[in-house]
């Protein structure tokens, strides 16, 4: 059985994000990269399947810069068998990424039985790649799953919907799942795991290798900038009973004209 896990490398949650001076992207030089936390649930699920089916092969796939390969190395240190890295700029859009992932999976020469990915990446929060990928691969998919059970060639997947109710799906493999928090508890990469990961194969591909070109880009970023700083709050002194009516009218007026929330 071949399991593919798509992972993204994102800035550590404690990183202070600054846009580049020309606003074309964010400064990446001093960023500490980590595996997207939602992808950790996907890796863990793949490893749980492998534990129950020792013959299963777990491949991790990533599209992004090759300068730092933290996310793939971590996944292999956790127990994944091999990795595929498609070299690309870190600001690719969801469509190009999905197409590159599909291309890399095809290039691996292994027929996928399961494709897993985090439901969203915590950097751009687009929540699109797993679904686009499933469409491109012409496979069924369930997103935001919190339960996963594999029985032969059928997966019973659970997803949370509004109001705390659960939807239960039965899907025939091959299929794609986007994982959510609560699915499992990702393991740590152990130290022996880190040592072993060094000897595991990491195949590097270019965007051209996987059939992606600039023409595939659907979204172009026009500018990156920090949100404007919040202006200081205003205080109204309403202790004088005689003036209260007037002050209330003033506050209501400002909420209408300035804050525009009523």
């Amino acid at each position: 059985m071949n399991i593919f896990v798509c992972v993204k490398q994102v800035p550590d949650t404690e990183t202070k994000i600054t846009p580049t001076s020309d606003g074309s992207f964010i400064e990446t030089a001093s960023i500490k990269w980590i595996m997207n936390p939602y992808d950790e649930f996907a890796v863990e699920q793949a490893l749980l399947i492998k534990q129950a089916n020792p013959a299963a092969n777990v491949s991790v796939v990533r599209v992004g810069s090759v300068k730092d390969t933290e996310a793939l190395r971590t996944a292999m240190a956790m127990g994944a068998d091999d990795a595929f890295l498609v070299e690309a700029a870190d600001n690719l859009d969801s469509y190009s990424i999905a197409k590159a992932l599909k291309g890399a999976i095809e290039k691996s020469g292994k027929k996928p039985d399961l494709v897993l990915a985090g439901k969203q990446a915590i950097d751009d929060d687009a929540l699109q790649v797993p679904q686009i990928l499933a469409e491109m691969m012409n496979l069924p998919s369930v997103s935001v799953i919190v339960g996963f059970e594999l029985n032969g060639t059928t997966v019973k997947a659970k997803r949370e919907v509004e109001g705390g109710a659960l939807e239960v799906y039965e899907v025939a493999t091959p299929c794609v799942f986007a994982t959510n928090k609560g699915l499992n508890t990702p393991r740590y990469a152990s130290l022996p795991g880190i040592m072993k990961a060094k000897k595991k194969p990491m195949v590097q591909l270019s965007l051209a290798d996987v059939g992606v070109s600039d023409a595939d880009r659907r979204v172009k970023y026009s500018q990156f900038r920090l949100p404007p700083e919040k202006p200081a709050g205003k205080k109204f002194d309403a202790t004088d009973a005689a003036k209260q009516k007037e002050i209330v009218a003033q506050v209501v007026g400002l909420l209408r004209t300035e804050a525009k929330i009523i």
């Binding site: 190395r73 971590t74 240190a77 990469a189 152990s190 880190i194």
Partner: peptide, 15 residues
């Protein structure tokens, strides 16, 4: 080394 950084990351994550 990259291996030492990984070791350090794991230990700090555990801490």
């Amino acid at each position: 080394s990259s291996e030492q950084r990984e070791i350090q990351d794991l230990a700090y994550k555990f801490a």
